[in-house]
Design a protein around this nucleic acid. Structure first.
Lengths: 232, 232
DNA sequence: AAGTGGTCTAGACCACCAC
DNA sequence: TGGTGGTCTAGACCACTTT
């Protein structure tokens, strides 16, 4: 069970970077030098270097060489889904309303459209063990072929609803996370009587031409959600 | 300015996936078939497929073929740094305290250590335009070579402090985000007199052996921070 | 001119899978 | 057994950077 040559190259160089013998912006030995060092062909060395580049360890400049990359200390990956979180899972959702409106100035701006376009509004409540834990509002630009079927809406997440009418690969998404105090309407929906903070998550979905397709705002009870992310 | 052959392959297949003629779990044509289709050698075709794999469009199973991947609808990337956010930047930070303590049960558990180990505690306040907007507590497992220099601490972010004493590449990090109501101590520090929600961000940093190196909890005034993330 | 990385070829052998 | 992807070679030409 000996490893392929290119994997050995990857491990060796990762090791040198991790123990400090290769530091950020240092040059990695040239491809020809590595060919001799490992007695391998250049394509094999390049395979190893491409893995290191893919993993964010090095970058290459044509005509100059390959260099150790500055690590991205503040990059995190987060898997967000309004129906699931790391404390609880939504086990029931209730559809409050599906309507079609003309957007006001602010919403039209958010969706980069005009006030005379149709916008589908979906309001839902999410429950965990019978208790309402989140209030959810979605605004979708109405497009042909969009199936507004109540049953589907009740269970689907925001990207799922949007991707029903188009390929999901070309979607671009933005997430905005903040905290605020609930207003009266939300207090009513979520049965909040005391002081309690809300975690608010906004999702905005764009098509491949960077045109907004929809906006989704979810107001979570602060005591019922934690978002988790990690590096790698 | 004709593109390399492997780029044409990448673009063609991405296009087929985006317009739906190749759907998730569909098989991509075999490497030999693509060789004939593009009149290219197998290594060139493989280069194209490896780019598609790196970008998350396809995956390969030895002996079977390459297949279109199910898109990750809920994956986001977020760049978090306790000193910067999308509303404001911290333009001043004040060091409240640097002490060495023995952790209580809860903290010892969080740091996966015992109660007789030394833990460095750093408390800071972050300001924007003279106003306190965040209260920050860091707990670091004390290790040799850790430079506890007040001047450095005052300006450095959490990963920067940790990476001072070790290579930053092998660090693993976890982020936890939630909302809560401030207690009296935090209200005092942040000059909060009314009802106001806090956005709390916890960072936990592990070394390459998955041992926790430190914990950082930052309490932001809800009206002074929004975290942003996006797909891609 | 010499060295670097980027693209590409036409072969080869292997392990794995399905028939 | 034939097809698939995984690894690897020993060359080649190119554009770019450095000396």
């Amino acid at each position: 069970m000996t490893n392929p040559v290119y994997i050995r190259i990857v491990e060796d160089i990762k090791h040198k970077i991790n123990n400090g013998s290769l530091k950020p912006s240092d040059a990695v030995p040239s491809e020809n030098a590595l060919c001799k060092e490992y007695g391998a062909s250049r394509m094999t060395i390049r395979k190893g270097l491409s893995v290191l580049a893919k993993d964010g360890y090095i970058y290459s400049i044509p005509g100059k060489g390959s260099f150790v990359r500055m690590p991205e200390l503040n990059k995190y990956t987060i898997f967000y889904d309004e129906m699931k979180n790391s404390i609880n899972t939504v086990d029931q959702s209730r559809l409050l309303e599906v309507t079609i409106i003309m957007p006001d100035e602010k919403l039209a701006g958010e969706l980069q459209t005009t006030r005379n376009k149709n916008v589908v509004v979906i309001r839902r409540l999410f429950y965990t063990e019978g208790k309402p834990i989140a209030y959810d509002i979605k605004y979708l630009l109405y497009s042909k072929g969009m199936p507004i079927v109540e049953k589907e809406i009740e269970q689907a997440t925001f990207p799922e609803i949007i991707s029903g009418s188009m390929s999901a690969f070309s979607l671009k998404k933005e997430l905005t996370i903040y905290a605020q105090i609930p207003d009266k309407e939300i207090k009513n929906h979520l049965n909040i009587y005391d002081e309690l903070a809300l975690l608010v998550v906004e999702q905005k979905i764009y098509n491949e031409d960077n045109k907004p397709m929809g906006l989704c705002v979810t107001y979570f009870r602060g005591d019922y959600i934690k978002l988790k992310g990690n590096s790698e």
